[in-house]
Design a protein around this nucleic acid. Structure first.
Length: 677
RNA sequence: GCGCCUGUAGCUCAGAUGGAUAGAGCGUUUGCCUCCGGAGCAAAAGGUCGCAGGUUCGAAUCCUGCCAGGCGUACCA
């Protein structure tokens, strides 16, 4: 029997619903639950009696009292009480919950899946234009996507991570223009640059891209070259296309390495060029026309275009919109999908891609092995050769998350609207735009980078990152800086003199600092990037979390070395007896221990909340609260010096339970824990 | 103009489905190593939750209107 919070709460709901139905003949859906402000008032509470009071025209407290009398017996719940104007508070069976959490964390119990988990979930993230080095904003995307994928897996879902590569877009074309028309380089010369070990090709392109953007402003002829170049790249043959391919593949490989430094991996790279060359759009276009989702404009400003109507995009719910009889006559809410010259817009390609994601296109890519990760994990890439065999089955998902910044909301809504127009309402519901806000530069960060803020920048107190202008913090430079700082700390503390160990620890600490920094903000919050905050190792930071686990593990290491402590209690394989647990979890001091157990028991519930709200920060905050609670405990109780063996055994059990929970949580955040730090 | 988002402590931010005394980190001030690791612990100070109404047993949270910011609304991607 499992007593983790998630299960207990659903049992409580069930029971409450049942009792209310028996007693009042009223069927309620999802009774409201809450958490009391402190453990004296209980471990969970039902707040539904207030709502019921209205319906039954009775005082909530009276209802709560009459229901309370019949809630028990219930597995996992020891006591029920009524408080205040009508809270129904539940006191859990402390020994049972503690033992259950321990069994689960120690891997003795079956892993809890927090939901039904039918079908594959696809998470698309990173998707950086392959024409320059990645910057902090891209890191936010990747870390959010990667963390979300990790917690979906924990929740029992089968997850496929895709990275969309816009290898035929204007941004790649711009860099090609730079090489060809500004630097006068040949394909071979660019190839030599890529191969040059002394040169960071992505940094080189970062600068070149900024130069090209500037050059466009001074030389209109160059803008014409840009169009030719884009066309050649889209068509896919000739030296220009070859150079585009060369650049984008080289940059993608560098982006993969950057992501890998933070522990981020992918399953599949989807290339836009393959979507074009396999005519995915043609099939999507046919489908859209067949089902009347697109309309050809014979006249007006959009004459010659295929457009999609966006009115009523929120589904059939809003029938009563009589207001727009104005001069535009509803023409306002249309989106051009096919231009008057016959070419398809970005949204069109995205519609085709998403149809494929859900297995609705009736077509598939070819696949080739692209990269093997150090741990053997295979990364695939799409190709036009659909005859190749041996690849796993990609796509065909039942849920798709797209991690893109919030500026893309409109386009995401257009894709969903297209699905509804096609009659795929179910799939439209399962398309999730995982939106997040930008990373800007704080004034001090801008200053550190030698960027002079404009007057309006000063007023807003931040500077916008701009790849186009070459303004921003390069991802690798930031990772270098944070690891370098961590290395200095690790050396200072002298935990090890082995240089390669020091480097390994510094890498883990630096990555933890950076990942946690990017995760602790909710995605709706704009980050004003500041070096001081991002490089902090104290307070609410990744290293603080790691440190907590390191301390806990250090106790076990020392415990094993003490002959007075037997192997069993030194590293408890099983929980203490029920009697012992009850004894130590009672009373004023027991309450302190109990609060730790409760917190640890809430991991699954927290993961579910993070998943449902599409908010990894929820999990990050949970990790911090758990670490704080543990550090507090650590400071107030000496485990190894405890003279009473039974009590020492219990304290070890508690340390084990919490540290296992915390390291599991850190795993979900992509944070590794070094042995020393 | 229309649409979406944001406004909480000096600074940076949490506050799921309305719930019990609005929290944390940083910074400031002050304590704590005879004790398993001080990247730590504890305490103090710091709040008209942008403003004004409304809904109800109860509002930082929901509704309306203002104010201030951001983003979007391309035959760009």
């Amino acid at each position: 029997m499992c007593f983790l919070y998630l299960e207990i709460l659903s049992r409580v709901r069930e029971r409450f619903t049942q009792v209310v139905e028996e007693q009042f003949g009223l069927r309620i859906e999802q009774p409201a639950l809450g958490f009391p402000p402190n453990a004296d008032l209980g471990d969970a509470s039902i707040t539904a009696c207030f709502e019921l009071g209205k319906q039954l025209r009775q005082p909530p407290r009276k209802i709560a009292e009459s229901v309370a009398a019949r809630m028990l017996p219930m597995e996992g719940v020891e006591r029920v009480s009524v408080a205040g104007p009508g809270y129904l508070n539940l006191y859990l069976d402390r020994a049972a919950l503690a033992a259950s959490v321990f069994e689960t964390r120690a891997g003795h119990a079956a892993k809890v899946t927090t939901q039904a988990g039918d079908g594959k979930v696809l998470v698309e993230h990173t998707s950086i234009n392959p024409n320059k080095a990645a910057h902090v904003g891209h890191l936010r995307n990747s870390v959010l996507g990667d963390t979300f994928a990790r917690l979906l897996r924990f929740a029992g879902r089968s997850v496929e991570v895709q990275n969309y590569i816009d290898d035929t877009g204007v941004q790649v074309a711009d860099v090609v223009v730079g090489f060809v028309h500004i630097e006068g380089k040949s394909v071979d010369e660019v190839r030599a640059l890529v191969a040059d070990p002394a040169l960071r090709f992505d940094y080189y392109c970062w600068d070149l891209y900024a130069r090209v953007t500037q050059a466009y402003e001074q030389d209109p002829a160059l803008v014409a070259r840009r169009l030719d170049t884009l066309k050649a790249i889209e068509e896919g043959h000739g030296p220009v296309a070859e150079m585009g391919e060369l650049i984008s593949t080289a940059i993608v490989r560098l982006h993969l390495q950057t992501a890998l430094r933070l522990g981020i991996r992918y399953d599949l790279l989807v290339e836009e060029s393959d979507i074009l060359r396999l005519d995915f759009w043609k099939y999507a276009f046919e489908l859209l026309k067949q089902r009347g989702a697109l309309r050809f404009e014979e006249s007006g400003k959009n004459s010659g275009c295929w457009v999609m109507s966006l009115s009523g995009e929120e589904g059939p719910a809003e029938a009563g919109e009589a207001g727009d009889t104005g001069e535009e006559g509803g023409e306002r809410d249309v989106k051009i999908i096919v231009r008057s010259n016959g070419t398809v817009t970005y949204v069109g390609k995205d519609i085709a891609y998403h149809l494929w994601k859900f297995g609705l296109l009736g077509r598939d890519f070819g696949y080739e092995r692209f990269y093997t990760y150090p741990d053997g994990h295979q990364l695939w890439r799409t190709t036009t050769n659909t005859q190749a065999r041996g690849a796993p089955s990609f796509g065909g998902a039942s849920d798709a998350y797209v991690v893109i910044d919030s500026r893309q909301s409109y386009l995401q809504r257009v894709v969903a609207a297209a699905f509804r127009e096609l009659g795929y309402h179910e799939q439209a519901e399962h398309m999730h735009h995982f939106a997040y806000e930008m990373v800007n530069l704080s004034l001090s960060a801008a200053e550190a980078l030698g960027i002079a803020p404009s007057e309006s920048d000063r007023q807003r107190a931040y500077v916008e990152v701009s790849g186009r202008r070459g303004l921003g913090v390069k991802a690798d430079e930031l990772i270098d800086a944070v690891i370098e700082k961590a290395l200095a700390e690790v050396r200072d503390r002298g935990m090890t003199s082995d240089a390669s160990e020091q480097e390994a620890y510094a890498r883990m600490v630096g990555v933890a600092a950076l990942r946690y920094f990017l995760l602790k903000f909710t995605s709706r919050s704009t980050i004003a990037f500041d070096f001081k905050d991002a490089l902090a190792f104290e307070g609410e930071t990744g290293p603080y979390l790691q440190y907590s686990v390191v301390r806990a593990r250090s106790i076990f290491r020392k415990a094993e070395g003490q002959p007075a402590i037997d192997a069993e209690s030194g590293s408890p394989e099983s929980a203490p007896s029920t009697d012992a647990l009850q004894t130590f979890l009672e009373g004023a001091e027991g309450r302190e221990f109990w609060e730790l157990v409760v917190l640890a028991a809430q991991l699954e519930m927290t993961v579910r909340q993070a998943e449902a709200s599409e908010e990894p920060a929820v999990l990050a905050k949970y990790a911090f609260r758990l670490a704080q609670a543990f550090n507090n405990f650590y400071h107030h109780h000496r485990v190894l010096a405890e003279p009473d063996p039974a009590r020492r055994s219990f304290l070890l059990f508690l340390v084990r339970l919490v540290s296992e929970t915390l390291s599991a949580t850190l795993g979900l955040l992509g944070i590794e824990v070094p042995e020393h730090m």
